Simulated assay, not measured.
Amino acid sequence: MRSLRAAPPRAAFSALGTTAVLLVTDGEALADGERLLRAGLAEVDAAYSRFRDDSEIMRLGAYEGRAAPVSPLLAEALDAALRAAAATDGLVDPTVGQAMIDLGYDRDFALVDPDGAAPAPRPAPGYWRVRLDTATRQVVVPRGVRLDLGSTGKAFAADRAAARIAALGCGVLVSLGGDLATAGPPPEGGWLVGVGDDHRAAAPGDPVVTIRSGALATSSVTQRAWRRGGRAVHHIVDPRTGDLPAPVWRTVTVAARSCVDANAAATAAIVRGDGADAWLDGAGLPARLVGHDGRVVTVGGWRSHA
Rank of each mutant, 00 (worst) to 15 (best):
G40L: 04
G40D: 13
G40S: 13
L41Y: 03
L41G: 03
L41Q: 05
A42P: 10
E43P: 00
E43D: 14
E43W: 02
E43Y: 04
V44T: 14
D45A: 13
D45H: 13
D45W: 11
D45Q: 13
A46V: 04
Y48G: 03
Y48P: 04
R50V: 03
R50Q: 10
F51K: 11
R52D: 07
R52K: 11
R52T: 04
D53H: 13
D54V: 12
S55W: 05
S55T: 03
E56G: 06
E56K: 06
E56P: 10
E56M: 05
M58H: 10
M58G: 02
R59E: 14
L60S: 07
G61C: 06
A62W: 02
A62M: 06
A62I: 00
Y63W: 15
Y63L: 13
Y63S: 15
E64S: 08
E64R: 13
G65N: 07
A67F: 08
A67Y: 06
A68S: 12
A68F: 00
A68Q: 03
A68K: 04
A68E: 01
V70K: 02
V70T: 02
V70S: 04
S71P: 05
L73F: 01
L73G: 00
L74N: 01
L74Q: 01
L74Y: 00
L74T: 00
L74A: 01
A75D: 06
E76K: 07
E76F: 00
L78I: 00
L78W: 00
L78G: 01
D79F: 06
D79S: 15
D79C: 10
D79H: 13
D79Q: 11
L82M: 09
R83Y: 00
R83M: 09
A84K: 03
A84C: 06
A84N: 07
A85K: 03
A85T: 02
A87L: 05
G90Y: 03
G90I: 03
G90N: 04
L91C: 05
L91Y: 05
L91E: 09
V92H: 02
V92Q: 05
V92P: 01
D93G: 02
P94I: 01
T95M: 06
V96H: 00
V96L: 03
Q98K: 12
A99T: 01
A99I: 01
M100Q: 15
M100P: 07
M100A: 12
D102C: 10
D102Y: 07
L103P: 08
L103W: 11
L103F: 12
Y105V: 12
Y105F: 15
D106C: 13
D106Q: 11
R107M: 15
R107C: 15
D108T: 11
D108P: 10
D108H: 11
F109D: 06
F109P: 12
F109I: 12
F109L: 13
L111P: 10
L111N: 14
V112E: 09
D113L: 15
D113M: 14
P114Y: 09
P114C: 09
P114R: 08
P114T: 03
P114W: 08
D115Q: 15
G116E: 09
A117V: 11
A117Y: 07
A117P: 13
A118K: 11
P119E: 06
P119G: 07
P119S: 09
P119F: 07
